[in-house]
């Protein structure tokens, strides 16, 4: 009499899977994640392995992305760059997500004065010169990866907080929430069981776009620091800033890292759009 039925998530996944472009974007992200996780094993050459006799070579079978002036394999460098970039992007997004959603939930549900304080703080963070702040802190701490993740996360949570609070306000007087109060549930129970699930889809969609922000910000920042000592690890910004110096003679030094970065960002945006269509089919676009 009762069919067993696909869960709501499965329905969302089916709608997502219908969107060919988004699926390609997702596959691209999965590929990048594999490269980032097992980059050490997958890279064709060890990091910083230099062959001075093969400097500034164009793309070939042995060096698909070419080599730089020191003879380092560009594909290897890009793979390591990807590893760093994704680690920071993922970590910082998670930090921003957790902080922002907690602040937003509390703000939307707590007493008015708590809401006031939290929203002032959020507004302050929104207007905060995040780039300069990040540049300063990272300079001071010499770009230790934990610090970078923390700093980027803290500059980006305000968007999550605003979004979450707005969504919470639209559902906090719903009959569902009222029926939670009616059975005597505590506020925490109601927040986690009734409210969060109703707002989570929009938050997931927003996450993809915050990740784009963080990765871009990070690339800009390493461009700003250039090859300086602040960033010991290879990042895209570094590769790109080096590449710009040699762009006329050796185009692959710029095109390969830039192309990889752009394809990463495009894949994220496309997946975000796909999530929007799949998880929020009737809802208003949140971006």
């Amino acid at each position: 009499m009762i069919r067993s039925r696909a869960s709501l998530w499965l329905q969302g996944w089916r709608r997502f899977a219908d969107n060919k472009v988004a699926v390609i974007g997702l596959a691209w992200l999965v590929l990048f994640s594999i490269v980032a996780l097992w980059g050490r094993q997958l890279a064709p050459y060890p990091m910083h392995y230099a062959n001075l006799f093969a400097g500034n070579e164009g793309p070939s079978l042995s060096h698909p992305f070419g080599t730089d002036s020191l003879g380092q394999d560009m594909l290897t460098m890009v793979m390591y760059g990807l590893r760093y970039t994704l680690a920071v992007g993922f970590g910082a997004t998670v930090v921003a997500l957790v902080v922002g959603v907690l602040v937003g939930l509390t703000s939307g549900l707590a007493a008015r004065w708590v809401d006031e304080i939290l929203m002032r703080l959020t507004d302050f963070m929104y207007a905060f010169p995040g780039f300069l702040f990040a540049a300063f802190i990272i300079g001071v701490f010499h770009g230790a990866i934990g610090v970078v993740i923390g700093v980027f996360g803290l500059t980006q949570w305000a968007g999550f907080a605003r979004l979450t609070r707005g969504l919470v306000l639209t559902v906090r007087h719903s009959e569902l929430v009222e029926s939670g109060h009616a059975i005597g549930a505590s506020s925490t129970f109601i927040a986690l069981r009734y409210i969060l699930p109703q707002v989570i889809n929009s938050i997931i969609v927003y996450t993809a776009f915050v990740a784009v922000n963080i990765i871009t910000l990070q690339a800009e920042l390493s461009l700003f620091y250039g090859t300086g000592p602040a960033l010991p690890l290879i990042s895209f910004g570094q590769l790109i800033s080096q590449g710009t110096q040699d762009v006329l003679g050796y185009w692959w030094l710029l095109v390969m890292p830039v192309g990889t970065l752009i394809s990463l960002l495009v894949a994220l945006v496309v997946v975000g759009e796909g999530l929007q269509a799949a998880l929020n089919p009737k809802g208003n676009r949140i971006l």
Binding site: L8, E175, L176, E178, S179
Partner: peptide, 11 residues
């Protein structure tokens, strides 16, 4: 409540 669809947890 009036609208059980809205008052029950659909998830």
């Amino acid at each position: 409540f009036q609208d059980p669809g809205a008052a029950l947890n659909a998830r």
